[in-house]
Design a binder for these strands. Structure first.
Length: 173
DNA sequence: TCCGTATTGAACT
DNA sequence: AGTTCAATACGGA
C-alpha cells in the first residue's frame, strides 16, 4: 500500500471521491466508499486529510485542478485541464491508458480498437486487463471503452458506476 | 509456468 | 437469436 501518498477527498454530487497524490502528480483516484474503482484492500481505512498533516502547496494546486476536472466530467463536460498524472504501470499499460485519454467525451471505443491503436490488434483481452489496472478512473476514461457491438462489457467492482458515467455523457443502451 | 481476465468472432444449438 | 468455445496477450502468484 502506498502510505506515502497524500489522500484528499473530492465532494461531488455522486459522492466523495478520494484522490491520492505522489510527489510527481495524481497517482490514484477512488470512487466513493469502497465499491467500484480499484481493488485497494483498504476500504476499511478512513481517508486521512493528508500524509503528515501538511499538504504541500504544489499538491493543493493539483487537487484543485483534479476536483474541477472531475466535476466537469460528471457534469457531462470535457475538462479543460488535467493535473499531472503519476501512474505506475508497465509500458503496455501506459500505452493503453494513453490511448484511452484520447477518446473524446461522449464517444466510445471498443477494446479491439484500443488494441489496434497500440499496434497489438490481438491483445484485446490484455487491454481489458490494463483498463482494470487503471489507477485513475474517470479522468482516464476507462468507462468509455465498451466491448464490440456496443455491448457494455464489464467494470471491475462497480458496473453501475460505468453505467452512470456513460449516462452522464449521454451514451445510452 | 499456470491461471484469470473489463474480449472476440465463429461455430452450434 | 442465444450460447458455447477456442484463441490470444499480459500481469500476477
Amino acid at each position: 500500500m502506498k502510505t506515502d501518498l497524500v489522500a484528499l477527498p473530492i465532494a461531488t454530487a455522486d459522492g466523495e471521491f478520494i484522490a491520492r497524490y505522489s510527489e510527481k502528480g495524481l497517482a490514484e483516484l477512488n470512487f466513493p466508499n469502497g465499491r467500484a474503482g480499484l481493488p485497494l484492500g483498504q476500504s476499511a481505512q478512513q481517508h486521512r486529510p493528508a500524509k503528515g498533516g501538511v499538504v504541500p502547496a504544489k499538491i493543493r494546486g493539483w487537487h484543485r485542478v483534479t476536483a474541477k476536472a472531475l466535476k466537469a466530467v460528471l457534469d457531462g463536460r470535457e475538462p479543460k485541464t488535467l493535473p499531472p498524472l503519476d501512474m505506475a504501470g508497465t509500458a503496455f499499460q501506459k500505452s493503453v491508458w494513453n490511448q484511452m485519454q484520447k477518446i473524446s467525451l461522449g464517444k466510445t471505443k471498443s477494446y479491439g480498437e484500443i488494441a489496434l491503436a497500440i499496434g497489438k490488434p490481438k491483445a484485446v483481452r490484455a487491454v481489458g486487463g490494463a483498463c482494470g489496472a487503471n489507477p485513475v478512473p474517470v479522468l482516464v476514461p476507462c468507462h468509455r471503452v465498451l466491448a464490440a457491438n456496443n455491448k457494455l462489457g464489464g467494470f471491475g467492482g462497480g458496473l453501475d458506476w460505468k453505467r452512470r458515467l456513460l449516462k452522464h455523457e449521454g451514451i445510452e443502451f
